[in-house]
Amino acid sequence: MQITIDIDHPEPLFAQLIEQIKQAVQSGKLSPGDPLPSIRQLAKDLEMNNKTVAKAYHLLERDSVVQTKGYRGTFVHADAKANSTIDLNAWVTNKLSESIAEFRESGVTDSEIRIAFGNVINERSTKGVR
């Protein structure tokens, strides 16, 4: 099974990669336990930077779509099909929209929301909190 990436597409390359691997899992073209190509192999074949593929694999691992087993490589996660339907980007957008709507109802201005959001992000980054 093969994937196609468009380097001129506005969607970032790692996001295209994630989307297509999730699609492959959902359509049954990739089954739980199937080995995935190494980061190096996929990066060479797609003429991409290793870091881009590594980022995609890292995010897929975070979402429990793939599983890295040390030197043995990366495999499709046992619960990959169920986890491929969860779109974390959509979830974050939804949660933020709810919070922003609540702030606005309480009279907080957009400028104050931006500053507060930036402060929280910066504070957590500085302290190394996830």
């Binding site: 099974m1 093969q2 994937i3 196609t4 990436i5 468009d6 380097i7 001129d8 597409h9 691997i21 492959a24 073209k29 990739l30 080995p35 995935l36 190509p37 190494s38 192999q41 996929l42 074949d45 797609l46 003429e47 991409m48 490589g73």
Partner: peptide, 11 residues
């Protein structure tokens, strides 16, 4: 071409 194709099988 701006598209790149790869196999999703380990080689």
């Amino acid at each position: 071409a701006t598209t790149r194709t790869a196999d999703l099988r380990r080689r």
